[in-house]
């Protein structure tokens, strides 16, 4: 299962976990790498398909952007918008300090 493009290192897994904002414990990096390598090994069959000149198809229906009229209309009330917030400070959602910390 080390064939194909799936030359995924532990360091790669750590990097992807960081991009994905997932705290993966050190002892899970190895097993997770193996699972991903197995799946990527299977997906490698796509590399054999001749895709020259094919337009990528991001969406099944041919459609263009549909915009609504630019006018104000009622939205969620403040209490509805805040009702699921895990931490509140008055009418605001409380979050850890964003600036000046060592956020990555």
């Amino acid at each position: 299962m080390d064939d194909g493009p799936a030359q995924l290192s532990i360091e790669d897994v750590r990097h992807v976990a960081k991009l994905a904002r997932l705290a993966v414990p050190e002892d899970r990096l190895g097993p997770m790498r193996e699972e991903l390598v197995a799946i990527l090994g299977h997906i490698a069959q796509l590399q054999a398909v001749d895709t020259k000149g094919l337009e990528p198809m991001a969406h099944p229906l041919p459609m263009t952007n549909r915009l609504r009229a630019d006018e104000s209309r009622p939205g969620l009330s403040l209490s509805d918008a805040l009702r699921n917030a895990p931490a509140r400070h008055g009418d605001f959602i409380a979050v850890p300090k964003v600036l000046g910390g060592e956020s990555s």
Binding site: R21, L22, L36, L40, S103
Partner: peptide, 29 residues
């Protein structure tokens, strides 16, 4: 989890199950 990055990463790691995390990893990759 006082740091914003750790708050995201810890909340998601605690909240999502193994298969969801696997697919997020695969998709991100």
């Amino acid at each position: 989890s006082q740091d914003l990055f750790d708050l995201y990463a810890n909340s998601r790691a605690e909240g999502f199950g193994a298969e969801v995390q696997r697919r997020i990893m695969l998709g991100t990759y």
